[in-house]
Design a protein around this nucleic acid. Structure first.
Length: 274
DNA sequence: TCAGATT
């Protein structure tokens, strides 16, 4: 559809047009039947360089692919290393799991995980559910919440009087891009924080409650054992702003949660294997 | 004692 997006000359009617072209796919819905139900696979551990085409090539040996997708970071556009493959038939998906789960694609250094995808209609929004949950000590702010509150006030004063904090995100980001150095925990979309010594029954809501008062938290995760579903003793929190993350770490490292003393720091790259 | 990711 041509659209006038600029009038270059009113008197002689010269316009600049822009032309937007959209592509649609229209097709009959596939008749539902047991044979095509649950034929959708979730794939993780993909090499970040793998394209959708290469992903399809890898899986096409097991059957007809209906759709495929690689998830990308919304900011950087780079692959998140996870994706989806929907096969025509469930039996094809089962064969693909048998053949590819735990295998290294040619040229890859890490094995991929292939399993049936969750059904998106039954997903729960963990973040919203957790944040709706309010514990009594949140309603009556303790020392922790007061510290976070002071910090926010401090931020407002900085903004009002133009005082730059030494932890200002601008300074840090400028340093990062100029020197090309890697700062622990910095993931591009936020600052990843490692929380150690969580109790086996810890859940995401406790992380939201602890870190939320310090600023913008975009993600929390309690790492659980696959079989027991108990917390493995640690978790991760992603915060948007460096100074808020730094304040949360400074305040929460050594914090006593129940009968445990937490260790809180920026996430490092160390692996738990070997 | 430093993951997993769900269109």
């Amino acid at each position: 559809t041509p659209v006038i997006d600029k009038i270059l000359c009113y008197s002689c009617n010269i316009y600049r047009f822009s032309l937007w072209v959209s592509y649609f796919k229209v097709s009959y819905a596939r008749p539902s039947s047991a044979s095509i139900r649950d034929a959708n696979l979730y794939v993780s551990g993909l090499p970040k360089t793998m394209t959708q085409k290469e992903l399809e090539q890898l899986f096409s040996q097991y059957g007809r692919i209906i759709t495929s997708r690689i998830l990308v970071d919304q900011v950087t556009g780079v692959s998140r290393g996870v994706g989806f493959i929907r096969f025509d038939k469930r039996i094809e998906a089962e064969e693909a799991i048998k053949g590819l789960n735990g295998q290294k694609p040619s040229g890859a250094t890490e094995p991929i995980t292939v399993k049936f995808a969750n059904n998106p209609s039954q997903k729960t929004n963990q973040a919203i559910l957790s944040q709706l949950y309010q514990s009594p000590n949140r309603r009556y702010p303790g020392p922790l919440a007061q510290q976070a509150q002071r910090f926010r006030l401090d931020n407002l004063l900085n903004m009002a009087y133009g005082v730059k904090s030494r932890f200002s995100p601008m300074t840090i980001d400028g340093m990062t891009s100029l020197a090309g150095i890697n700062i622990p925990g910095h993931a591009g979309t936020g600052w990843c924080i490692f929380v150690y010594n969580l109790a086996p029954d810890a859940d995401e809501s406790i992380l939201w409650q602890m870190f939320g008062p310090f600023g913008a938290v975009t993600n929390v995760k309690v790492i659980r054992d696959f079989n027991t579903n108990k917390c493995k003793g640690f978790g991760f929190v992603t915060m948007t702003n460096y100074d808020e993350a730094a304040m949360a770490i400074a305040s929460l490292n050594g914090y006593r949660l129940g009968d445990r003393v937490l260790q809180v720091s920026f996430k490092t790259n160390k692996t738990h294997k070997a």
